[in-house]
């Protein structure tokens, strides 16, 4: 063939091919100078945050620190007033809508477990599975054996095989949390945003969740927002403290906990 089919042209190398995320610089998620204000209140104030490919990051901070707003900005639910949000080098998330961001490889677990209550556990996972999610292909979609295996595998990982055909609305609170995490896994995202995964869980469930999340890091990048300090300590390698919409401190758990500014925010005045 003649030289130079457009895709291999050197000059266009900085644009990641569609469907792939360019992480050659080791960073998968960039938030730079992001500001979001609601009626004058700055929920995020010049926030800059970098998540490395494959890392497990915990975000902590007092109420109103901007943790959930940060997730809203990344997933396209809220548009930033200023600042940029990039997935890898080339994917500008601020111009994309929620479903596009989800299909680009960002999965999100809500604070309150949100699943499809009248669908069975199996169907919940099936709907979340990575596939062509447009209307027409969905109309004719049939599960392949491979896809069934994948669902079965995730179902085993989250320990819900026994309730496979129960409506998800009948699950316990902890099981719903797990199902939602399972749905994230089915999406095969590169970045998982997990909002308070252990709220309302027993200690055993918490331990299993910790094991699951640490197991996911590496292959995926995982960002966990959590209030439960014991849980954060059990999984965290790197912790970011948010306060009044920007980063107050960053580092490993011990450094952060001994930082006088962090102590002041959590305990002082």
């Amino acid at each position: 063939m003649a030289k130079g089919s457009a895709g291999t042209f050197e000059g266009s190398a900085h644009v990641a091919p569609p469907g792939e995320i360019d992480t050659r610089h080791g960073v998968i998620l960039y938030m730079e100078n992001v500001t979001v204000s609601f009626d004058g209140f700055k929920a995020l104030n010049d926030l800059s945050l970098y998540i490395d490919d494959g890392e497990l990051r915990c975000i902590i901070g007092p109420n109103g620190a901007g943790k959930t707003t940060m997730m809203d900005v990344i997933t396209g639910k809220t548009r930033p007033d200023t600042g940029s949000v990039f997935l890898g080098q080339g994917t500008d998330l601020t111009t994309m809508s929620e479903y596009q961001i989800a299909n680009a490889g960002v999965g999100r677990k809500f604070q309150k477990p949100t699943i499809f209550p009248t669908h069975t556990v199996f169907e919940n996972l099936e709907l979340a599975m990575q596939s062509d999610k447009r209307v027409w292909p969905s109309l004719f979609a049939r599960l392949t054996g491979e896809q069934r295996d994948k669902i079965a595998q995730v179902m085993a990982t989250i320990g819900l095989t026994e309730v496979c055909y129960s409506p998800a609305g009948l699950l316990s609170h902890g099981q719903k949390q797990w199902l939602e995490i399972g749905m994230l896994l089915m999406q095969e995202p590169r970045v998982l945003l997990v909002d308070e995964p252990v709220a309302g869980m027993t200690h055993q469930e918490m331990d299993r969740t910790a094991a699951l999340l640490t197991g996911l890091a590496g292959e995926h990048s995982v960002v966990v927002v959590e209030h439960d300090m014991a849980f954060v300590r059990s999984i965290a390698r790197k912790v970011t403290v948010l306060h009044q919409g920007s980063v107050l401190a960053e580092g490993d758990m011990d450094t952060v906990q001994n930082d006088p500014r962090v102590v002041e925010v959590y305990l002082g005045a």
Binding site: E98, Y99, M183, Q187
Partner: peptide, 10 residues
């Protein structure tokens, strides 16, 4: 919202 964040154009 869940449907949207799972990747469907609602």
């Amino acid at each position: 919202d869940r449907a949207r964040f799972v990747g469907y154009k609602v």
